[in-house]
Design a protein around this nucleic acid. Sequence first.
DNA 1: CTGTCAAATGATAATGATTATCATGATAAT
DNA 2: ATTATCATGATAATCATTATCATTTGACAG
Lengths: 144, 144
Amino acid sequence: MEQRIDRIKKQLHSQSYKLTPQREATVRVLLEHEDDHLSAEDVYMLVKEKYPEIGLATVYRTLELLTELKVVDKINFGDGVSRYDLRQEGAAHFHHHLVCLECGSVDEIQEDLLDDVEKEVETRWNFEIKDHRLTFHGICHRCK
Amino acid sequence: MEQRIDRIKKQLHSQSYKLTPQREATVRVLLEHEDDHLSAEDVYMLVKEKYPEIGLATVYRTLELLTELKVVDKINFGDGVSRYDLRQEGAAHFHHHLVCLECGSVDEIQEDLLDDVEKEVETRWNFEIKDHRLTFHGICHRCK
DNA sequence: CTGTCAAATGATAATGATTATCATGATAAT
DNA sequence: ATTATCATGATAATCATTATCATTTGACAG
């Protein structure tokens, strides 16, 4: 935990941003909920527990900043809300998601799976892939 | 064109919806811009050219209805706007997208590509896949 | 035909998420 | 200490989407 925060701090500094108390509190919430897919409002409410003076705008700004730095990824599952998902440290690509149509749960797939597909797309469509988003919609193992 | 409208008409009737003039005008716009990825506002402005009395709410309602019937798919590329994309007739699954980070263009991949990946997900994660969304972000062949 | 009823429409208000603004507060360098 | 810069919090503004509601339309019964 502390080491990860430290690395994020360094990453911020390398672009001359600071790790303010508000930003640190926000990052801690994200680390503590690594498996969830929190909306900005979710993050706001969780951060407020530890840091009640924080404003919603600051949370939005911090999440935007972390997205720029590729510490988090901003995703959208089709409800009108953006969600923020920590990247695995050192992961080349963004992980995939399984969205259950029954219970609404969102599970993650950390494996790459797309290596072959990406090679094919790069050559056949002459497209240089920088990132991807892959989401499956269906029935999760719990609901079956 | 006329045949496709006719089939959509039948599809509506089968669920006891009608193909009103407003709905037909909207469908025509979608058919005429099959390769684009129009937002509701885009569709609205295009439909207005032929049917100026139409209201924005009707366009939203029609797009929602067509989404339900799986005539179109609602997609979201991360700007705050939903886009509506005609499904290929008879396509089992939704097609994929190539979003260019340089010029913002969106190209389509009609091939399935995910067969193997889906088999793996179904067995390893015990997840029954109903649909998917796959988008690649990168540099398109024109910008390279 | 003509009246009736449910569905569809258009105008517009309401909502909800996100972004912009701006005065204030903290921080670091001179 | 002083200034300049960045960050923050409160709140207003914006933008896409949804809800409301009075009116219109079209199918159908009599």
